[in-house]
């Protein structure tokens, strides 16, 4: 336990350093982008005098080190600054949208993992059969289908033709179904393919032959012995995919009008709203780091041979 605590403390300390690094990179990256945030936010009809006034209000007339120092000082107090576009605290903007993004990522991830693992195991159970080929086609389609296209097809079928589900928005609980399926399609396919190869590899090992020789039912061999030992790479894929789902929901959010952070990030980048871009990227980084840590901890749970320290 002590070892685990020390491991956790080290990883958390490393996460803080990582986030500081991320904050500096994002700070510099957004400022390297061409375009004057004050002009973009004030609009093309604003006079140069008003744009200049806004530039000063946004502290854009200060030197970069002063701007970064002031950003870090605010960050240390848990303050991400004020949105240049909406004049509202970035923390409020981000926290207002974060639950929607996490909700979508969790539901998509759950769908992708459940269906992906089931399909992968089914394909591995009867390799090079019709089922395997069929699943290969489906998963390849899942990997290669553009989110925009898939989203619109789902809307046309389930919202317009069948009229079963809301076409967009997040007004009702059912609203999440279509965006979650769309967002999860790629991960689902990836997890299925990863599961198939991982389980297939394990199925060829001696202990599986032993289990079968002992007369264990094929189902037990497959789900308990084979899948159990094939889980480490699958968990890695699920963890990485969860991180990607958090940050990669931009198109899905746009197609379905899902009010998450991805959409806000895009709006903020196009408006050169530096404080919000920094706030969102830091939030995504923190979540990604945390997910990775959880995945690492899960390794020890699914594979007792793995120890920390």
């Amino acid at each position: 336990m002590t070892t685990l605590r020390r491991y956790l403390a080290e990883r958390l300390a490393a996460a803080v350093v990582t986030l500081l690094g991320v904050s500096l990179i994002v700070f510099l990256m957004v400022r390297v982008l061409p375009g004057d945030p004050a002009r973009v936010i004030a609009g093309v009809l604003a006079s140069e005098e008003e744009v200049g006034r806004l530039r000063s209000q946004l502290e854009l007339d200060r030197s970069l080190p002063v701007q970064y120092g002031s950003f870090l000082l605010r960050l240390a107090r848990g303050n991400l600054g004020v949105s240049a576009r909406t004049s509202e605290p970035v923390t409020r903007e981000v926290l207002g949208r974060l639950p929607r993004t996490v909700e979508l990522a969790v539901v998509s991830s759950a769908i992708a993992t459940a269906i992906g693992i089931a399909a992968g195991v089914a394909a591995a159970a009867c390799p090079y059969s019709i089922v395997d080929y069929l699943l290969s086609v489906v998963t390849l389609s899942g990997v290669s289908m553009p989110v925009y296209w898939l989203g619109l097809v789902l809307i046309i079928v389930f919202a317009i033709d069948l009229n079963w589900l809301p076409a967009a928005g997040a007004e009702e609980p059912a609203s999440i179904v279509l965006p979650a399926l769309t967002l999860g399609a790629f991960s689902m396919a990836l997890i299925a393919r990863m599961t198939r190869s991982s389980v297939l590899e394990v199925l060829g090992q001696d202990y599986v032959r032993t289990a079968r020789a002992k007369g264990l039912a094929e189902r037990a061999v497959l789900w308990r012995h084979a899948l159990g030992n094939a889980l480490v790479p699958i968990i890695t894929a699920v963890g990485l995919q969860f991180g990607a789902l958090l940050g990669g929901a931009v198109l899905t959010e746009s197609v379905f009008g899902w009010p998450g952070l991805g959409l806000l990030l895009i709006d903020s980048i196009f408006a050169r709203d530096y404080p919000v871009v920094q706030g969102i990227v830091l939030t995504f980084s923190a979540l990604f780091t945390l997910t990775n840590l959880l995945v690492d901890l899960l390794y020890a749970y699914v594979d007792p041979r793995i120890h920390y320290g």
Partner: peptide, 18 residues
């Protein structure tokens, strides 16, 4: 007033009577 950035989705909402 619903915020729906994608034009095709706005159209779908109208066609679906939503």
């Amino acid at each position: 007033v619903r915020i729906v950035p994608e034009a095709a989705t706005r159209e779908s909402l109208l066609l679906a009577g939503q």
